[in-house]
Simulated assay, not measured.
Amino acid sequence: MTPSHSADTSDLELLRAHVDGDPEAFGVLFGRHRDRLWAVALRTMGNPEDAADGLQDGLIAAFRRAGSFRGDAAVTTWLHRVVVNACLDRLRAAKVRAADPLPDDLDERESRGSLRTATAASLDPAELSVADERRRTVLAALQTLPEEQRAALVLVDMEGYAMADVAQMLDCAVGTVKSRCSRGRARLAGLLTDRLAALDADPTGGTTSGPGDAGLGNRPAGRPVPSQDPPRGPPASP
């Protein structure tokens, strides 16, 4: 953080400084929210390459449109809205449907809502193997959802944002977010019930938690787990 931008400098002050021509303010602002913006882009897009492109599109849009920020939401909510919309635009244009491999970065990090329900230290190798496979199964199923449902579930169930905040990010009513989450969860349940049950009966003898613990719908809204390690791969700020 530069001397002119201390930890006490608010997000709004940084955004206004950027609009007024401060060449460093936007970079400081992005640095504050980099982890969560990257996590949302990664889960929405499904792989690091597309996530980097979506995040870059969003950051460029935010950089250029900062003057249009109306102040009717928190700056971080506005940033997420711009990045999510950029990712959804890419998904719609490319007609992406669960064809890309899951990023290893997601599996390695517990902190960004990674679906991990137990630490490696608490699991024997067989249990850890089953837990990893369960996580991959859930994430792969997530990529089959329609883009709007996927974005809502990523923001609410995996990132822990409140419904009202997600409604602002997605520019829709709270009821719409609830409906998208409900339909998405129902669709995931249909896809995952048999698959996760089969993993629970893994012949290695490892025991895992039930399908409801796979990472969707368990974290209280607005209470995400704080990041501990920076993610790998997101692009630099514009």
Rank of each mutant, 00 (worst) to 15 (best):
M1A: 13
T2Y: 11
S4W: 12
D11H: 12
A17H: 07
H18R: 06
V19K: 00
D22E: 06
P23L: 02
V28L: 12
V28Q: 12
L29T: 02
D35E: 15
W38S: 06
A41C: 09
L42C: 00
R43E: 05
G46K: 07
P48L: 05
P48V: 13
D57N: 12
G58L: 08
A62M: 10
A62I: 06
F63V: 03
F63K: 06
R64F: 04
R65C: 09
A66I: 03
R70I: 00
R70P: 00
A74F: 11
T77I: 11
L79F: 04
V82R: 00
V82I: 15
V82A: 01
C87S: 03
L88S: 11
L88I: 11
L91A: 08
A93Y: 09
A94M: 01
V96L: 07
A99N: 13
A99D: 15
P103F: 00
E108T: 13
E110A: 14
L115D: 11
R116D: 01
A118S: 12
L123H: 09
V130M: 06
R135A: 11
L142T: 03
Q143Y: 10
P146D: 11
Q149L: 04
A151Q: 01
D157I: 01
M158W: 02
M163N: 13
A164S: 07
D165R: 01
S179Y: 10
S182H: 14
R183L: 15
A186D: 13
L188S: 04
R195Q: 14
A197V: 09
A198F: 05
D200S: 05
G205K: 04
G206D: 10
D213I: 02
G215I: 02
N218Q: 14
R219D: 12
P220M: 08
P224C: 05
V225T: 13
P231V: 08
P231L: 08
G233Q: 12
P234C: 13
A236W: 13
P238R: 03
